[in-house]
């Protein structure tokens, strides 16, 4: 529904905006508190994207930028899961865009000067739409961890960036997915701006042997949740609405 009331964000579940260990927040995190717009005055709706705009190969990062017959270097993986709202309802027809470094930890971006090699068969961009059950999947290679300028010896855990559209602009979210077992997770200042370890755990994809394709792809499951309906609205909604 593109106009149903949404419950307020629980900011304690999100990363602190000002987190000194992540140095870029120092001059960028706003100092004044957010001003809450009452639900009745909130703008509803959001952009819709048609399935016809997206090709199946858009979600296959292993080959979408590769020369015909070749493929990206790295551990071949499937990332899949459900997109739900906070009432655990699947969100169908939602646009998900992803970007990531290659297997050596280098982005194909004119600004990335890391000395690790580029892969001529990998760009690191992908996108897909959730299906009618709110399911999505990407084929890609596992990105490498990479060092970044934060004043010290800082390395990002292997991660994939996710940009997610719900059906309302107020659900808009950008996040990152991490990999179960990565020892960089515990020492990443960006991830540790999240105070609650259960919220950190929510960003960690789980190895999913049941969805691995033998002799082909390892699989990881990563479910995502966007803001959902205000509890009172959801409980009192008319039957079938």
């Amino acid at each position: 529904m593109s106009d149903e009331p949404l419950q307020p964000r629980d900011w304690s579940w999100h990363p602190a905006s000002d987190f000194p260990a992540y140095r870029s927040t120092r001059l960028r995190a706003p100092r004044q508190p957010l001003i809450a717009i009452p639900e009745a005055l909130r703008d509803t709706g959001g952009p819709a994207f048609g399935h016809d705009l997206i090709a199946e190969t858009d979600a296959d990062l292993i080959i979408n930028s590769a020369t015909a017959g070749e493929s990206a270097i790295g551990e071949r993986i499937l990332i899949h899961g459900h997109l739900l709202d906070e009432a655990a309802r699947p969100i169908p027809d939602a646009l998900i865009e992803v970007w990531q470094a290659n297997a050596s930890g280098r982005y194909r971006h004119k600004r990335d000067g890391y000395q690790a090699a580029l892969d001529p068969n990998f760009s690191g961009c992908g996108r897909c739409m959730t299906d009618s059950d709110g399911r999505y999947s990407f084929r890609t290679i596992r990105p490498g961890p990479y060092p970044w300028p934060n004043g010290g010896n800082d390395w990002r855990p292997a991660h994939i960036h996710f940009s997610i559209f719900g059906h309302q602009f107020a659900q808009r979210l950008i996040t990152q997915m991490y990999f179960e077992g990565d020892p960089h997770i515990a020492i990443c200042p960006i991830l540790n701006a999240i105070a609650d370890p259960r919220a950190v755990s929510q960003l960690v994809a789980r190895l999913d042997m049941a969805h691995a394709v033998p002799m082909d792809l390892q699989a990881y499951r990563f479910d995502m949740v966007l803001r959902g309906p205000a509890a009172t609205y959801f409980e009192n909604r008319p039957e079938g609405a």
Binding site: W13, H14, L173, I174, M224, V225, L226
Partner: peptide
């Protein structure tokens, strides 16, 4: 269930 935490 909770909203997925944001990341930069």
């Amino acid at each position: 269930i909770k909203e997925t935490p944001s990341q930069t």
